[in-house]
Write a protein that binds this DNA or RNA. Sequence first.
DNA 1: AATTCGTGGCG
DNA 2: TCGCCAAGAAT
Length: 365
Amino acid sequence: MIDMWDEDKIHDFRATLLNWYDEAGRADLPWRENHDPYRVWVSEIMLQQTQVQTVIPYFNRFMSMFPTLNDLASAPEQALLKAWEGLGYYSRVRNMQKAAIQVRDDYQGVWPDNMATLEKLTGIGPYTAAAIASIAFNEAVPAIDGNAFRVFARLFKIDADIAQPKTRKVFFELGLQLIDPARPGDFNQAIMDLGSSYMSAKNFDSEHSPVKQFNAAYADGTEEFYPVKTKAPKPKPITYFALAVKSPAGYLWEQRPADGLLANFWTMPLYALTDFVNDPDADWTMEEMIAATEQRLLTDYGVKATLAKLAGRPVTHVYTHQKWTVTVLTAEVTEQDLTRGTWRPKTALAADPQPKIQEKIWTKI
DNA sequence: AATTCGTGGCG
DNA sequence: TCGCCAAGAAT
């Protein structure tokens, strides 16, 4: 149960928070230059699960390449993926283009000015809808992100598990009472700035926080226990072979499927060990695994080659739910007809959107 | 409700 | 090396 503040304390909190924000908020961030909804939207999508420092250069580049909603709506997907390359969660940019088309065609190019309607757009959920509505259109709705979860949980010592979807409602209702109706956008951004500084997850400094007198967890030294969040399962280990097959026409190269992990990105052929080993406990030698991979290369791509394992360690990459260990196998062939994939010169393939794991594979070759 | 979907930073 | 976190949404 939340021990809610009285009216006076709420007003005191708003004034204290916003005074601090006016003095010490990060006014220098490029997306705070103005409150144009397109600009706010692009920044909020990029900032999902991504740190400010990482986003800044991507944001500036993206706004130069796609200055208006119409530019984004009509861009080729490969150009969008290339602009997003390295940011991760690539469905974000595909969904952005869908939403841009929705606004252009279904809303005559005019942005919806309220949270409920914004939430109907693809890729815009409750957090992003509230952020845009409050910052661009002054609607008094709280933007409940990781920062708001953490800040509110500590201020009120809320024990609800923020990993559970139903918990969002508790924080949203609380935020509705706290938010300053006169400056909702600034209030939301102030909470975020606070949550990424004095009230961060680790190395927080509540002692010097502008709202320390409102912090119930600080009062009894229990901040480190808030917010309550059940831990995620460990990433599942997966073993892969990457095939670096070189011909006079370039490397064997192909685009990943349109759905799932790294959709539509370009990589060298990748085989999971489980693609040809049914028994996970099978004790194959490296020679046997290479022979099996050669067989697949011939069957799937029509390429006959003798693969060799590179010296040194495999490359690894950790995703949210998978941990990849990739052994790179190389071969040189004379040009052959392909039944799948394409030959692409190294100078040309740099233009293709590639995932981080492919970048790591290149370093081994 | 529980899974899926990237990458970089940091203790 | 490892675990956790960072301005979440779709299915």
